[in-house]
Amino acid sequence: MKHLVLIGGGHSHAIALREFAKSPVPGIHITLISDVLQTPYSGMLPGYLAGFYTFEEAHIDLRPLANLAEAEFYCDRAIGLDLQQNQVLCTHHPPVPFDILSIDIGSTPATLNVPGAATYGIPAKPVPKLLEFWQQFREEVMQSPQQFRSVAIVGGGAGGVELTLSIQAHLNKILEQKYHKNIEYHLFHRSSHILSSHSRYAAQTLTRIMQDRGIHLHLNQTVSRLEKLPSERLKLDCKSGLQIECEQVFWVTQASAPDWLSASGLSTDDRGFIQVNDHLQSISHSTVFASGDIATLLNNPRPKAGVFAVRQGKPLFENLCRSLQDKPLISYHPQQQFLTLIGTGTGKAVASRGKFGLGPFRLIWTWKDWIDRRFMDQFNP
């Protein structure tokens, strides 16, 4: 009996567990370690924030999925690895031994270089923490709609733009028309235009949409400090000298990895992500695999995007099975370009792929909704 341990309930691991349920492999015992019972699907998260989906529709319940795969489930947080003894160190459980280990724990926004960001900012990941703060803020707005508030979003990539549009659309839905202007939205981005890694069409179109909806864009601005004032408001300082006061700051910047990965002895890149080969296998430890945001493909580096985690699910499953059975591994080759569908929070979406863009159209959102619901249907027991 060989022991396969999966750390994290990300998209790749959810797909791998589904494959193990469909095609059981004799002679192995599977353990899933995750600090959440229900893992969010990134494709539906903006729609959930905008009010289009329920919590259950936008989350994968790991418990029945683990049961179907006949996997043992530890609801716990991994905090380290002992790679000499092949053990996973957890917060509450004794060390968990493994023959093969796979890691899919996502990433968090980098805040270390900005004083006060880790203390007062609301990171976009891990998602459960984001949703906790979001629900609290939503309740406060509903209870006192007449109170003036200011919200800041740091990061003008697809995640930051879609988060801004989604929360504004949702709050506008639940507030009376006369209270819409009681909430200001400020988006900070260090580049000269938002969506720097997407098509010019998408960047220009969403810039126009945000301006039309009264969202303040602060471009070429690098946030250098975040502090709490005696009034309990938060103050953002930028390197340019710009200062903005607000009630909430959502942090959606470049991704980073937890320190315990590099401390364990795994080969990592300069941001702490696990370096893997074309087999999704650690380049330093052949018994360790990684996928999703937490992995960096050494030969084919790609942006940290959910589309790659989804595509890695089946190749990861195949190589975990092959590694457990001492068979040759297969190679995973990510696509050069990928389609991004960015929702506006109003039932429309903009499509971006390479240099091309389209929208915003309601049909694109309908298409995106169909894609996301079909993906989630795979995990319905």
Rank of each mutant, 00 (worst) to 15 (best):
H3L: 08
L4E: 00
H13L: 11
H13C: 08
A16V: 11
L17G: 06
L17Q: 05
F20G: 00
A21K: 00
G27L: 09
L32Q: 00
L32P: 02
V36H: 02
V36P: 01
L37N: 05
Q38A: 11
T39I: 08
G47Y: 05
G47N: 00
Y48T: 10
E57K: 10
A58T: 11
A58C: 12
A58L: 00
D61W: 09
P64Y: 07
P64D: 07
P64L: 14
P64H: 08
A66E: 01
N67I: 13
A69K: 01
E70L: 11
Y74W: 09
I79H: 03
D82G: 09
D82Q: 05
L83D: 03
Q85H: 06
N86K: 13
C90H: 02
C90K: 03
H93G: 00
P95W: 03
L101E: 07
S102I: 06
I103H: 01
D104N: 15
I105C: 08
T108G: 03
P109Q: 13
N113C: 13
A117L: 12
G121N: 01
P123L: 11
A124T: 14
P126N: 03
P126R: 09
V127W: 05
V127L: 09
L130F: 03
Q135E: 04
Q136R: 04
R138D: 14
R138F: 05
M142W: 02
P145M: 00
Q147A: 09
Q147E: 05
F148A: 14
V151N: 12
G155D: 00
G156I: 11
G157S: 15
G159D: 00
G159M: 08
G160Y: 10
L163T: 10
T164S: 14
Q168N: 07
L171Y: 08
L171C: 03
E176W: 04
E176V: 01
Q177E: 07
K178E: 13
H180C: 03
H180K: 10
N182R: 15
H189M: 13
H189S: 11
I194G: 08
A202H: 04
A203Y: 04
T205Q: 15
L206E: 12
L206Y: 02
L206D: 03
L219F: 06
S224F: 02
L229F: 03
L229T: 13
R233Q: 14
L236K: 04
K239T: 15
G241L: 04
E245T: 15
C246V: 15
V252A: 13
V252E: 07
Q254S: 15
A257I: 06
D259F: 09
W260K: 12
L261V: 06
A263K: 15
A263Y: 04
G265A: 05
G265P: 10
G265V: 05
L266C: 06
T268V: 15
G272V: 09
L280M: 12
G292M: 12
D293I: 14
I294K: 05
R302S: 12
P303W: 14
P303L: 13
V310A: 11
K314P: 07
P315I: 12
L316K: 10
F317N: 01
L320G: 04
L324T: 01
L324V: 06
Q325A: 09
D326Q: 07
K327Y: 05
K327Q: 08
P328I: 02
I330F: 02
Y332E: 10
P334R: 07
Q336D: 03
L339K: 05
L339V: 08
L339I: 12
T344H: 01
K348D: 03
A351W: 02
A351C: 11
R353H: 03
K355G: 15
F361M: 10
W370N: 07
D372I: 03
